[in-house]
């Protein structure tokens, strides 16, 4: 069985199990997983960037653009369906990245990281200065339907979870496929040696630009999913600490599989939830210590538990 088929089957199996498990899960867990998958989508985009050799400290920008696009379309333009709002969030974030990419795609390493961070902080500043969008208080989002089903009662509890699962599975599948295409394989090549890629006749800047747009679309979808699950949006989504958390999820999870960011995000959300509950005064300390432990014990990320065991195979 080819690697691609194996990944696809694995993702579909995980998706099926997660859907089947929905009625067994307590309500708080449904919410926790939905929010974690929203964050996992952003981390999935970061995984693509890291494979291209770039670390963005500004994915919060696209996360916020996706959320605000979904939120304003829901409240001002009366777009009622959650699925449409998620797509809209992804498209809006991709469009923003398309423009910013003209500049961002020229930079690498720390310069790229700082520039991406600067853009996200400009967005944060603009949102804080916009009383019409609720300034720092933000505003509420409440979709009318999810794929045609009214968003109320049982649907209200299950819809964000199922929606997040569907978007996450589709995104992971699509990204895995993309990485196996000719264009997708250029990403690690760019990371290894840009000069050779140019000699081969490919445009490094176009590759970087495309990957930026894809990562932004994923972050935008993640922002919209999070906004719909939480029901509220505020400028904190664009703040640099939010972007930092995404980088952290990606690094802790590992970059060897498209499933890793989601598993990592769920694990971190669970950890935070328990830490807050059992150590209300010292939960940040618990989080920090655990993350430090993970990095020291598993430098390749949590997913390396699975790959290391089978590391002997090619």
């Amino acid at each position: 069985m080819s690697d691609a088929r194996r990944t696809a089957l694995g993702l579909l199996a995980a998706f099926a199990v997660a859907v089947a498990a929905a009625p067994l899960l307590p309500r708080w867990a449904l919410f926790l997983v939905a929010v974690a998958l929203g964050r996992g989508l952003v981390a999935l985009g970061l995984l693509l960037l890291i494979r291209t050799g770039l670390v963005s400290f500004g994915q919060g920008l696209f996360f916020a653009v996706g959320a605000y696009a979904a939120g304003t379309a829901g409240s001002r333009l009366h777009v009622g369906d959650a699925v449409a709002l998620v797509l809209l969030g992804a498209v809006a974030a991709a469009a923003v990245a398309g423009v910013l990419g003209l500049l961002l795609a020229r930079y690498r390493t720390i310069f790229f990281a700082m520039l991406s961070l600067a853009f996200s902080m400009i967005a944060y500043g603009l949102l804080v200065e916009s009383p019409a969008l609720g300034s720092t208080d933000g505003f509420n989002v409440h979709p009318a339907t999810v794929a045609g089903v009214p968003f109320a009662g049982r649907a209200e509890a299950y819809a964000p979870y199922l929606l997040a699962l569907a978007v996450a599975a589709a995104a992971a599948l699509a990204l895995d496929r993309f990485q196996r295409t000719h264009l997708g394989r250029l990403a690690p090549a760019v990371r290894e040696n840009e000069l050779r890629v140019e000699y081969m006749g490919a445009s490094v800047r176009n590759v970087v630009h495309l990957n930026l747009v894809i990562a932004a679309a994923l972050a935008g979808a993640g922002g919209a999913v999070t906004a719909l699950a939480v029901g509220h949006i505020d400028p904190e989504m664009a703040y640099w600490t939010t972007s930092g958390e995404f980088v952290f999820v990606t690094i802790v999870a590992g970059t060897s599989s498209v499933a890793a960011p989601f598993a990592g995000a769920i694990l971190l959300e669970l950890l935070r939830s328990y830490a807050v509950q059992h150590a209300p005064n010292t939960w940040q300390l618990v989080m920090g210590a655990t993350m430090l432990g993970i990095i020291l014990a598993l430098p390749g990320g949590l997913w390396s538990i699975f790959t290391r065991r089978r590391g002997a195979r090619p």
């Binding site: 194996r6 694995g10 499933a259």
Partner: peptide, 11 residues
């Protein structure tokens, strides 16, 4: 390599 079984098991 990616492993559907361990993924499914972990989920």
């Amino acid at each position: 390599t990616r492993t559907p079984r361990s993924l499914a098991v972990s989920i």
